[in-house]
């Protein structure tokens, strides 16, 4: 039982790490700020969810688990909001987005 939990936790951490890394590579590779926001979105959603759920499985049933899930909720509520505010500001302040 303990083994299954730690394997599942490891899987989640691996998925989270992979997506965090891909998102960060995207932030560097993408051609303009709007496309970079898409890449950052990967880190903010599956990257953060993977890492936090992996850690939550390590925590077991405790207050810690609740706080980790609370943190995930905050991240998933606040990050898209910041992302949208940034995109909107960039749209007003910059110029039209990069097209092919």
């Amino acid at each position: 039982m303990i083994d299954i939990m730690s394997i599942a936790s490891g899987m989640f951490l691996l998925v989270g790490s992979v997506f965090t890394l891909i998102g960060s590579i995207g932030i560097v590779r993408m051609p303009d700020v709007f496309t970079r926001l898409h890449a950052a979105g990967i880190t903010d959603t599956l990257g953060a969810a993977g890492v936090l759920l992996g850690l939550a499985l390590k925590a077991g049933f405790s207050l810690l688990l609740v706080k980790l899930l609370l943190m995930l909720v905050f991240l998933l509520l606040l990050n898209p909001t910041a992302c949208h505010a940034l995109a909107r500001a960039a749209l007003h302040g910059l110029r039209r987005p990069w097209m092919d």
Binding site: F34, T35, L37, H38, A39, G41, I42, T45, L76, L77, P80, T81, C83, H84, A87, R88, L91, P97
Partner: peptide, 26 residues
């Protein structure tokens, strides 16, 4: 709706208006 759009990578909400949403898609 706007946050759901932003939350799915590949689409970002640019502007929220009365009955439409402007979206940047990858």
């Amino acid at each position: 709706y706007a946050n759901s759009i932003t939350l799915t990578p590949g689409t970002i909400t640019l502007e929220v208006e009365e009955n439409s949403i402007e979206v940047h898609a990858l």
